[in-house]
């Protein structure tokens, strides 16, 4: 018989599963035009109304564009990566997904990445097109740091989406929650509506959202220059989301295997 697999083989196997899951999810997004519409329209609408209501000066324009993109990213995350497990349940594929050879978490994060890339891609295209159409003066002062920021955005949104997915799995009304969670973060996420506009007793809320720190980092990177603190906080929060997501997911799966509800719709 074969001995225990080598660490290198294990890692390679996990990476292969992860990438396949990402690719599969991206493909199934293609068959779902609603997600495309939600990810594509929201940044356009928000950007146009925010900018045309009062044309911003050049330094403020970049901030608005960043905030709009991250707001739209939240809006699409609740549906795309946040919906991964909900869709798994509707299709009845959850059982097979959690009973593969690799850890279910690898599959979940892979799928979440696939969905996030799709959402981020759509939002980027829609936003850039709108910026050009509106002739907004947006300067890219520190392209390297913007790229770093974008990478962190993808990782963070992937993790956040996985976390939402796991939380939605705990309830039967995931669809309802997806719809209900959009506007609270629009208002309290510290993105388009800055933190200091909120009443004092609510100002802690945006601090918990990694996207708010990425927003700060990207705004700085587009203007005065990048600073490390917001980036570090965003990464730390992302790690925390990942840990909570993994724990919740394990717990849900164990619970479902106990109850025999793994293949319930």
């Amino acid at each position: 018989m074969t001995g225990p697999p080598l660490l290198g083989d294990r890692l390679r196997g996990a990476a292969w599963t992860f990438l396949t899951a990402a690719r599969t999810e991206q493909r199934s997004m293609r068959g779902n035009p609603l997600l495309l519409v939600n990810a594509g329209f929201l940044p356009v609408v928000l950007l146009v109304i925010a900018v045309e209501a009062q044309r911003p000066p050049a330094d403020r324009a970049a901030q608005i564009v960043t905030s709009v993109m991250l707001t739209a990213l939240w809006g699409s995350t609740v549906w795309t990566s946040g919906g991964v497990l909900r869709r798994e349940r509707t299709y009845g594929t959850l059982a097979r997904c959690v009973c593969g050879v690799e850890s279910p978490t690898v599959v979940l994060f892979g799928k979440s990445l696939g969905a996030t890339l799709y959402g981020v891609g759509t939002i980027l295209v829609a936003t850039v097109a709108t910026v050009l159409a509106l002739r907004l003066p947006v300067a890219l002062a520190h392209p390297f740091w913007l790229a770093v920021g974008l990478l962190v955005v993808v990782v963070s949104a992937t993790t956040l989406g996985a976390l939402l997915s796991c939380l939605f799995l705990l309830t039967r009304n995931g669809l309802l929650w997806s719809g209900a969670l959009m506007y609270p973060v629009f208002v309290l996420g510290g993105l388009l509506i800055p933190q200091d506009v909120l009443p004092v007793w609510l100002r802690w809320v945006p601090q918990l959202l990694s996207l708010r720190w990425i927003n700060e980092f990207l705004s700085d990177a587009a203007g005065p220059g990048p600073s490390a603190t917001p980036l570090a906080v965003a990464v730390a929060l992302t790690v925390a989301y990942g840990v909570v997501a993994t724990r919740t997911y394990r717990w849900s799966i164990d619970k479902a295997r106990q109850r025999g509800s793994l293949d319930h719709a």
């Binding site: 599969t24 493909r27 199934s28 293609r30 068959g31 779902n32 299709y91 009845g92 594929t93 059982a95 097979r96 293949d263 719709a265």
Partner: peptide, 9 residues
């Protein structure tokens, strides 16, 4: 059963 497959794929 008929479930357990990704319908759009």
């Amino acid at each position: 059963g008929e479930r357990g497959l990704y319908a759009k794929l």
